[in-house]
Design a protein around this nucleic acid. Structure first.
Lengths: 263, 263
DNA sequence: CTTGGAGTTTGATGTGCGTCAATAATGATG
DNA sequence: CATCATTATTGACGCACATCAAACTCCAAG
C-alpha cells in the first residue's frame, strides 16, 4: 500500500541538518541578507574562500525576491541585468518558439543559478516560472563580474556553473535524440533524486513539483506517454506513484533501464 | 531562435570579404602568432579593445595546432587545460553514453570556441573531432582567466560565449523535443547557412563536411531519414543535393518549413 | 583500368509513441 | 457542501520514423 508522503516527511531525512522551514525562518529573522550566513552557501558558493573574500561576497546579493507559484521570475525578451540564486522553491525554465510551442529546458531547485541565458544578448531567452512559492537571491550581473575580477576562486566558480549547464544540456540532447520513453523517464527520476539527495532529501521518495505535461515537454514526449510510463514502472514494481508523490522501490532497476540499450 | 543571428555575429557580415582559403595562407606566412594580426579576430574577440588591451591579448594564444581529418582535438575524459579557437576546418563535438551510443552535440567552424565542456570537472566531457584538416589556436584556460581579470571587456566576452552555447543548446532541445524531421533539417541548413554567411560564404550553397549519419545524430534521426528528407526537399524544388554539395533554391520555403507547426 | 570500402539512396515493412477521446481524481472556490 | 477547472489515467487507433535490405555512387589503392 502506498502511504501518502506528506511534505514534512519527504523533506525531512536523517541527512538533513537544515530543513527548509529553518531556512525560511532565517530569511525572516534578523540576520542580514548575506551569503556568509546562508545555509545554502555550500551549494551556491565556491569552497576555499578566505574570511575576507567571504565578507566581500556578502555584497553580491543585492536583495531577495519572493515569487508566488506560477509567477515569472523573468520572461523571454526581458532585459538581462541579474542572475538569481534559488533559495527556496522549484522553478522551470522554458523557451517558446515563434509558432507558440513551449519547450521546458530545465527544472531548478535550491542552490541553483538561473538567468545565464540572458548574458549573450543582454536579454532573456526563456521564461523562468516558479512551480511553487519561492524565494531567490538577486545578484546583479555587473556585480558578479566585478567581484569575479577581485576573487579568482569566484571567477572560476562562475565559469564552472556555466560549464555545468552546458554539460547538462549535452546530456539532455543525448536523452532526447537517442533514448526511448522509459529510459528518459528513468533518467529524469534518477537526476531529480540525486539532486534532492545532495540537498538532504530522501533517495527513495520525492514529490514532483511539475505536471505530467511539463515533464513531457522536458523529455520530448506527450503527457499521456509520461503517465503510461509511470504506470508501467508502477506495474513492474519499480516505483509507487500517487499523483505527484513517487516512491522508489527498486533504485537499481531504474538505473538498469536508464543505461540499457534495450533496443 | 535557433537560426537567429546574434548581435555579436551580425556586425561581422559586411566586413568579411575574404574566403577561408586566404586565412590559411596567412597562417603559413611570416606573421607572428598573434590575435591582433588574425583575420578572425572579429569572430573570436570582443569589440572595443584598446590598442594596449589588444597587445595584452596577443599572449592569450600559446600555440597553434594542426589536426588531421578524423583526428581528435580532445577526447572525453582528457584533462582540461585549454580552450581552442578554430582557425580553419570544421569540427564535431560528441558525447558517448555508457552503452556506446554516440550523440553529436554540435558542429563548429572557424572563429568558434570549443572546450567549454571541460571547465566544470577539469576534464573533457566530449570528443572534439576534425571533419577536415584543421588548425586551432590553443588558449590555456588559466591564461584566459588571468587576462579576463585584467580586461573587463574580455571577461564579458568569455561570459557571452558560454551563454551563447547555453542558448544554442536550448534551441537544439526545442528542435529535438518538438520538431518533425523536415523542420529539423530545415533548421539545421538555415543555421549552417547563416553561420557560413557571417564568414563570407554564399547564402545559397554549402558543402556539408559531415556525413548523413552525423547530421542524423545531431538532429535525433536516422541517416536514412536524413537522406529521404534531403530527397524530399529536392523533389519539391527547395534545394539541389549532390552528395555533400547543397544548393538552396528557395530560401523562403525553407524558413517556412522551419517555423510552421505543420501538424 | 579494377577492386573494395565507405557513404548514400530508395523501397518494404514494423513499431513506439502521438492523437483523439472518455473517465477519474484532485484541488480550488463560493 | 456542491461545483468547476485542472490534472491524470487509460483505451483505441494511426502515423512518422525506425528498421531491414538492396543497390548505387564515389573515391582511393593497387
Amino acid at each position: 500500500m502506498f502511504n501518502e508522503i506528506t511534505q514534512e516527511e519527504a523533506y525531512n531525512t536523517e541527512h538533513l541538518q537544515r530543513p527548509a522551514k529553518t531556512i525560511s525562518m532565517h530569511a525572516e529573522s534578523s540576520f542580514k541578507v548575506a551569503c556568509s550566513n546562508c545555509n545554502l552557501r555550500e551549494l551556491c558558493l565556491p569552497i576555499g574562500l578566505s574570511t575576507d573574500e567571504m565578507k566581500q561576497l556578502d555584497g553580491m546579493v543585492a536583495t531577495r525576491k519572493k515569487i508566488k507559484q506560477g509567477g515569472h521570475l523573468y520572461s523571454s525578451g526581458d532585459a538581462f541585468t541579474t542572475l538569481y540564486a534559488i533559495r527556496t522553491g522549484f522553478f522551470k525554465t522554458c523557451v517558446v518558439s515563434e509558432d507558440g510551442r513551449e519547450q521546458v529546458t530545465g527544472f531548478q531547485m535550491a542552490g541553483e543559478i538561473v538567468g545565464l541565458d540572458g548574458i549573450v544578448a543582454d536579454k532573456h531567452n526563456c521564461n523562468a516560472i516558479a512551480l511553487e512559492d519561492a524565494e531567490v537571491c538577486v545578484m546583479p550581473f555587473n556585480h558578479v563580474e566585478d567581484l569575479s575580477r577581485e576573487i579568482p576562486v569566484l571567477q572560476r566558480h562562475v565559469h564552472k556553473i556555466m560549464s555545468r549547464e552546458i554539460v547538462r544540456e549535452n546530456g539532455v540532447m543525448m536523452l532526447l535524440a537517442n533514448m526511448r520513453a522509459e529510459e528518459r523517464l528513468a533518467a529524469f527520476l534518477l537526476n531529480l533524486l540525486q539532486r534532492l539527495h545532495a540537498r538532504g532529501y530522501s533517495k527513495s521518495e520525492l514529490i514532483l513539483r511539475m505536471t505530467r505535461e511539463e515533464i513531457g515537454s522536458y523529455l520530448g514526449m506527450k503527457l499521456e506517454t509520461v503517465s503510461r510510463t509511470f504506470s508501467k514502472f508502477s506495474d513492474e514494481g519499480i516505483i509507487e506513484v500517487k499523483q505527484k508523490n513517487v516512491r522508489i522501490l527498486d533504485h537499481e532497476k531504474l538505473k538498469t533501464i536508464f543505461n540499457s540499450s534495450t533496443c
